[in-house]
């Protein structure tokens, strides 16, 4: 058996890994909740954001955390434009077309990145990547502490936007009642695009948090989105709280199962939990009951 200290550290580090998962899942679940589609381009967008962070570091010498001030607005703009001028018009409002268009978009982006950057993996060197934060007797990885903090701040900002602003109220209104929203003068196409923008901005935050400890190559985002999708289903499709709690839970589970089953089997725990939750609550932890 492991000492309780090691277990506690693993669980805490898992919580912080989960925070980044939660950020990726937030965007996915938000878009699902409002447009009722799964955005297959989400992974490609994450890859773009990670390359963005890498470029800001390698070309401009920007610290990856600091580069958020560039990457987050840029990703929001990209998400807005992609929905407003590509995904929306190309799918003409038919949900299954939106699926295909986002899938097509992700293939184009992936291959575009491959052409630009080849399939080499890129990393960022920082002097804090391997630093630890001492919390009493516990040693916590510095980037993961930052990750948890930033994810929580992002969640609070998102909550404020959704609950305390006109745009947030409009997003929630459009999610459930498109016609009613149109008739009070809400531009539904604009709100769709804003939803994409917010989801993509979350990816910008996630990318900045990941790059000091991870690598990027043109397929990197896809792996994260697979886990993020698991989280979205686990938390309840469309539930923001579900994405947060689900993300943290999955991070802890992954961390615990790599401790006990070894790194290569870390993700087995995720899918065991996933199946167990869905057997008991098919709508997910925070999904609407029918």
């Amino acid at each position: 058996m492991y000492s309780p200290l090691i277990v506690a550290e693993a669980l805490l580090n898992g919580l912080m890994l989960g925070a980044v998962y939660a950020l990726v899942a937030l965007g996915l679940t938000l878009v699902y909740g409002v447009l009722h589609i799964v955005n297959f381009a989400h992974g490609a967008f994450l890859t773009v954001a990670m390359f963005g962070v890498w470029l800001a570091w390698s070309q401009l010498g920007m610290d990856p955390y600091l580069s958020m001030i560039l990457i987050v607005p840029a990703m929001a703009a990209l998400g807005y434009a992609a929905q407003r001028w590509i995904i929306g018009p190309a799918s003409r409002g038919a949900d299954n077309s939106i699926l295909l268009v986002t899938l097509g978009l992700s293939i184009i982006i992936q291959n575009g990145l491959l052409a630009l950057f080849s399939s080499d993996t890129r990393t960022i060197d920082t002097d804090y990547a391997f630093q630890v934060v001492e919390l009493g007797p516990l040693l916590l990885s510095f980037p993961r502490v930052v990750g948890l903090g930033a994810a929580l701040v992002t969640a609070v900002v998102l909550w404020v936007i959704l609950n305390r602003t006109d745009v947030g109220r409009a997003i929630r209104a459009v999610a459930r009642e498109k016609l009613g929203a149109s008739l009070v003068g809400i531009d539904v196409g604009h709100i769709y695009a804003v939803t994409f923008a917010i989801g993509s901005a979350c990816l910008g935050v996630a990318a900045a948090l990941l790059m000091p400890v991870f690598y990027v190559e043109p397929n990197t985002g896809a792996a994260f989105v697979l886990v993020a999708f698991t989280i979205v289903v686990l938390g309840g499709m469309g539930s923001v709280v579900g994405a947060l709690v689900g993300g943290l839970l999955i991070g802890v589970v992954e961390s615990a199962s790599s401790l006990w089953f070894g790194d290569s089997l870390g993700q087995i725990g995720i899918f065991l939990i996933f199946i167990a939750v869905l057997l008991i609550r098919p709508t997910g932890l925070f999904g609407a009951r029918q």
Binding site: R176, G180, L183, I186
Partner: peptide, 23 residues
């Protein structure tokens, strides 16, 4: 004001009214 009301069921009564004043 449409047939079948088309109010926002997932928003509070106050928020529904506030959104009426969106413009």
């Amino acid at each position: 004001v449409p047939e079948g009301r088309k109010i926002f069921p997932n928003l509070s009564v106050r928020e529904n009214l506030e959104l009426g004043g969106y413009r």
